[in-house]
Simulated scan of single mutants.
Amino acid sequence: MAKPLGVQLYTVRDRMKSDRDEVLGRIAGIGYGAVEPYDPLDDPEGFRRVVDDLGLVVSGTHAIDLIRQDPGKVLDAVAAIGTDSVIVPAGIPEEDFTTLDGVRRAADLLNGLAEKAAPYGLRLGYHNHWWEIEPRLGGRHAIEVLADQLAPEVFLEIDTYWAAVGGADVPRLLGRLGDRVRALHVKDGPGVKGEPHTAVGTGVMPVPDILAASPEAWRIVELDECATDMLEALAAGYAYLAELERV
């Protein structure tokens, strides 16, 4: 695979607060080659120095503050981190995904942010949870209706676990979304809201089928919470995914 396996750093958010550099070193030591930050405003220049020294690629960054405050300030920070992708991970009202008018509002917001990101050399993406999947509009998941209304340059980062929890057949959903999907959040667990996640490869998710359905998308491992040590779970997930790539 041309793109190195990545980690969404929200997975290790608690440890990052106490020793960011050590945690990033541990992630690189496991074998991951990419990271996806969740707060680009937190020392972007210092963060870039560390990841550059470790040889890590920044696949993209989440940036909920694009919705909460002046987008220009956020986009300046994203550009300083050294990536070409900025992703809205939440912040759009859940109820907007239950009606066609609400989906249109969400698309208008994202398309407008994409226009603001373009002069920075950045492409905008959107990351789902279950609430964009559970509602059906005209027999389709709301995320599919949203995709139809997004500008061509806006991509999707599909959280495969939350898509499954929301009721989607994830490989088929990915097949229908096609090239709109530029990145995947790969996670595993019991497939139940409120239950802790597990290392990738140890839960109910059909990971091989999911990866096969979107072969060009960047694979980003994320665990929102886990009953075991997070870094141990990341190591186990890396071993599983690396073995899949060798098969």
Rank of each mutant, 00 (worst) to 15 (best):
R136M: 09
D19T: 12
R68T: 03
A168M: 01
R172A: 15
D39R: 14
G191R: 04
K3R: 14
L100F: 15
F97T: 09
A212R: 15
G194E: 03
L156S: 05
M16L: 15
V7M: 08
D39H: 08
K187V: 09
V170E: 00
P171W: 09
I158C: 01
P40R: 05
P71D: 07
D76E: 11
Q149H: 07
D70S: 01
D76C: 06
D43L: 03
G112I: 02
Y32D: 02
A213G: 02
Y10K: 00
P4Y: 09
S214G: 04
E95R: 12
V154L: 09
L211C: 01
V7R: 01
A151T: 02
P171C: 04
N111H: 06
E222L: 14
A114E: 02
D224T: 09
I87L: 11
L5D: 11
A217N: 03
L24N: 10
G178H: 04
L244E: 08
I30G: 06
G6N: 00
R182M: 09
K116P: 05
V221E: 02
D65R: 11
T160G: 00
N128T: 04
R26F: 02
G138K: 08
G191I: 09
D19W: 04
L223K: 04
R20Y: 00
G189A: 12
G6D: 01
A151W: 00
D43E: 08
E243W: 11
G82E: 06
R15V: 00
L244G: 04
L41C: 05
D42Y: 07
V204P: 01
A114W: 01
R68N: 14
Q69F: 00
N128A: 10
P93L: 05
A28F: 00
A183K: 05
V86S: 13
P190D: 10
A183F: 14
P93W: 12
D101F: 05
K193G: 15
V200S: 05
G112S: 03
L234F: 12
G178I: 09
R13P: 02
T11H: 01
D101P: 01
T228M: 10
G29I: 00
T99Y: 12
A147G: 06
V103D: 14
A28S: 10
A199V: 09
W218Y: 08
V181I: 11
L109F: 05
Y238C: 07
M16P: 13
V57K: 14
S214V: 06
N111V: 02
M205Q: 11
L24A: 03
R26Q: 15
V86L: 03
L241Y: 06
E132I: 01
